Simulated scan of single mutants.
Amino acid sequence: MYTNISFTCECGSVVEHMAFYPVFVADTEKEREEYQETELETECDRCGRPYQVLVKNNFYDVEIIVDNGEIRVEHTEPQYEESELDLLLPKESSQIVLFREQLNTVQLLVSAKVEEKAQYGLHVMLYSHLVASAEGYLYSTFTKFVTQHDSLLRKLVETDPEFSKQKFSLSDIFVSRETLKDTIDKYLKDLIFHNMKKTKEMYLSVLGFDFGHIPWFFRAVNLRHHCVHRGGYDKDGNSLNINSDVILSLMNHLSDLIEAIEVRVKDFDDEGNKRVTYR
Results as ranks from 00 to 15, higher is better:
K186M: 14
S255E: 15
N58L: 03
L254D: 10
A112Q: 12
K200C: 08
D67Y: 03
T147Q: 08
E116N: 08
P50V: 07
D245E: 15
E101I: 01
V114R: 05
F211V: 04
E271H: 03
D256K: 10
K165M: 09
R230P: 01
D190P: 01
V146D: 14
D45P: 01
E33S: 14
T42F: 04
R279F: 12
V265E: 10
M196G: 06
M196I: 15
S13D: 09
V157Y: 06
K165H: 06
D45A: 06
F145H: 15
E39H: 13
V66D: 09
L152N: 11
W216Q: 15
I96D: 02
V66F: 01
D269W: 04
K56I: 04
D67F: 00
S171G: 06
V157S: 08
K198W: 11
E34G: 07
D182F: 03
E81Q: 10
L223S: 01
K91C: 07
L180K: 03
L108H: 02
K181T: 13
M196Y: 15
E81W: 07
L204Y: 13
N57I: 00
K266F: 10
S249I: 11
I261A: 07
L257N: 15
Y120L: 09
L257C: 13
D245R: 09
R279W: 13
Y139G: 11
K167E: 15
N243Y: 04
L138F: 13
D67S: 03
L191Y: 04
Y233W: 02
M196A: 10
I96T: 02
L40H: 05
L180E: 07
T28Y: 01
M125G: 02
Y203R: 09
H129F: 14
S176G: 12
L250S: 06
H123A: 01
L109N: 09
T3M: 00
K113E: 09
Q102W: 10
M125P: 01
K91L: 13
K189Q: 14
V25L: 05
V14Q: 11
D150Y: 13
A220R: 05
E158Y: 10
G208P: 05
Y233G: 02
G121E: 12
G272D: 12
G48F: 08
E34F: 07
H129L: 12
V23S: 10
F218W: 06
V228H: 04
D61G: 07
F59Q: 08
K200S: 13
D236F: 00
I242L: 00
Y127I: 01
H194M: 11
E63L: 05
K165V: 06
F142S: 13
V53D: 03
T3R: 00
